[in-house]
Design a protein around this nucleic acid. Structure first.
Lengths: 115, 115
DNA sequence: CTCACCCGCTAGCTTTCCTTTGCATGTGCA
DNA sequence: TGCACATGCAAAGGAAAGCTAGCGGGTGAG
């Protein structure tokens, strides 16, 4: 998730697609200030827990945040999330480089066998 | 579209959402190597003109590419596209900063009038 | 036991995105 | 006049994303 090595094209698509969402941006903003557990975060952001979970799942899948269970003093299981320190540089050049590593589009060529 | 001033949160969402697509990445890759007109670009990328046009529209809307008409020697109107030299730095910090400038979510408060 | 918190999942609806197909317009050349 | 190549837009269907509502389970404190 750092700058080097550059992400593959497919990964970049996934990461950018994940970042391109208001809720998820706010989640990152909140977590970058302080790690938090699901319910707390939901209250802070003013969204439902269910909705937050969906977004956290995507953020985790993209490797932008990470989570680990923890037991609070009174024995409750809390899932703490924190931001993953990523650094991405986007320019026509870096995009172009990533684009070259994209998995080729499904060529539906009727003459060529399926592989 | 440069690094400073940073884009507003909404703009960032738009830009990232635009970049998060294989076709559009390839378009940027192709155009960063050499500007081109629609039909040519479509042939190069192996996609339909209609499809390419949709993507070009989004790229243009996000300010990532620009276009201008030109008349070829034989008098045909060609629309040349070229990449806009953007530079974006993405880190938890820059995302957080952008997140703070997002237009607040539609509060559907039954007590408050519609505006 | 009941309440207050914590965690997680899914079915279902709505909206947005992606892509194809088809039609229209204009120019130059044979 | 007909073909080749340029541009553009819109309808329509399918796929993916976003969100809500509802249900389930667990622990500790009163």
């Amino acid at each position: 998730m750092s700058d080097d090595p550059p992400l593959s094209g497919d990964d970049l698509v996934r990461v950018l697609g994940t970042l391109a969402n208001p809720h998820r941006m706010r989640v990152i903003a909140a977590l970058s200030r302080e790690r938090a557990y699901v319910s707390r975060l939901a209250r802070d952001l003013g969204i439902s827990r269910a909705l937050l979970q969906v977004h956290l799942r995507k953020l985790t899948a993209a490797g932008l945040v990470s989570a680990h269970l923890e037991l609070s003093e009174d024995g409750k299981a809390m899932k703490y999330y924190e931001v993953e320190p990523f650094v991405l540089r986007l320019t026509p050049g870096t995009i172009a480089a990533a684009a070259r590593t994209l998995t080729p589009p499904e060529t539906v060529d009727p003459h060529r066998a399926e592989r």
